[in-house]
């Protein structure tokens, strides 16, 4: 067995620990703000104010909500399956946070004479790492719905299962075109390969497929059949309250951040700016965050605009339109890259 120290990492272990803490703190500072951001935007789209009571412009709303949720009595249904019911939200939030480690916020910087990459890890398998955690995050939904012992939860979880499997394929295939063009799986490598032109231009089909599949993967409207409130009350987290519910809520927003981060990295050039502008290194994370906010705003915009799909529409769209489109994009890219 090989000791870890033998493997080439240019960062000492304490830098990695600090980095992971910073990314964790940053994202968990953004997450509550995202909830209020979404509600504010939704309010504006619907010609009303949105939350505006707590703090200036309602900005302290998440604080009040988290306090309220944390003080709720932990309860469960009589038919719930004990520990699975408790473990499921943890799986959901753990996998969502783990996938965050991959989003690159910037290039390698020299901070106090130390080379530090502004990302959690830069693995050689790149997006596969995200898909691995996305695959496990499914169990958070599935077990939560099943262990609740309620029909609504179960139906929501089942829908989630089918939906996640169907759209994961298209999402993966849409990224393969970029990987072939860049010739690397490493996300920082993909960003560097976009120095001339962002991949949104040559890979526009892949970008669109990825975007649509991301809506399904994060269970956001118009693909939020998993929690279709008109039919299923709230889907897989119907029977959850208090902090377990917050875990599911934050997992959804964390997944949004991850998907936005991957889309930014892969299609929008990560920390690169157009027109040959090269700002100093400390600007990089802000560029990435700004681009991510673009995607998140788009997510909210779509939620405010489009009605929810019917279940068979969702399935036939995923398998009959999205998947052939992704495969076609893959084929064309392969031919173009090979010649």
């Amino acid at each position: 067995m090989i000791p870890f120290a033998l493997v080439f990492y240019y960062e000492p272990w304490w830098v990695q620990i600090i980095k992971s803490l910073v990314i964790f703190a940053l994202v968990f500072a953004i997450l509550p703000m995202l909830t209020v951001y979404e509600r504010k935007l939704l309010g504006r789209f619907q010609n009303r104010y949105g939350p505006n009571r707590v703090g200036p412009y309602g900005l302290a709303q998440p604080l009040a909500e988290i306090l309220k949720f944390a003080r709720k009595e932990p309860f469960r249904t009589v038919t719930a399956v004990g520990y699975l019911y408790r473990v499921a939200p943890m799986i959901a939030i753990l996998t969502a946070v783990s996938a965050l480690a991959l989003v690159p916020f910037g290039d390698v910087q020299h901070i106090f004479g130390q080379r530090v990459g502004l990302y959690g890890i830069d693995v050689s398998i790149g997006p596969l790492y995200v898909f691995a955690f996305a695959g496990i995050s499914f169990y958070g939904i599935m077990l939560g719905g099943w262990a609740s012992g309620s029909k609504y939860s179960f139906l929501g979880a089942m829908r989630g299962a089918a939906q996640l499997i169907s759209y994961e394929v298209s999402q993966g295939l849409s990224l393969v075109g970029v990987i072939m063009t860049a010739g690397t799986l490493s996300l920082t490598g993909i960003v560097h390969a976009q120095a001339g032109m962002w991949y949104i231009v040559p890979q526009i089909v892949g970008f669109l497929v990825f975007l649509v599949a991301s809506f399904a993967e994060t269970n956001r409207a118009p693909f939020d059949l998993v929690e279709a409130d008109a039919e299923l009350v709230a889907g897989y987290f119907t029977e959850y309250g208090g902090t377990p519910f917050v875990a599911y809520l934050f997992a959804e927003y964390a997944n949004m951040i991850v998907v936005s981060g991957i889309a930014t990295t892969v299609f929008l050039g990560g920390w690169l700016l157009p027109f040959g502008i090269h700002p100093p290194g400390w600007v990089d994370p802000f560029v990435v965050l700004a681009k991510m906010m673009l995607f998140i705003t788009f997510f909210v915009w779509i939620r405010a605009t489009l009605p929810r799909l019917r279940y068979d529409q969702l399935m036939s769209f995923g398998w009959k339109i999205l998947l052939p489109l992704a495969t076609l994009n893959l084929l064309v890219t392969a031919i173009v890259v090979a010649t």
Binding site: I125, A132, G135, E168
Partner: peptide, 21 residues
């Protein structure tokens, strides 16, 4: 790394999902 990721993606993420389903 690649084998580990495919193990999770293919088996834990897809095949077992169908079993569970």
């Amino acid at each position: 790394e690649f084998v580990a990721a495919s193990q999770v993606v293919v088996y834990a993420g897809a095949v077992m999902v169908l079993y569970l389903f």
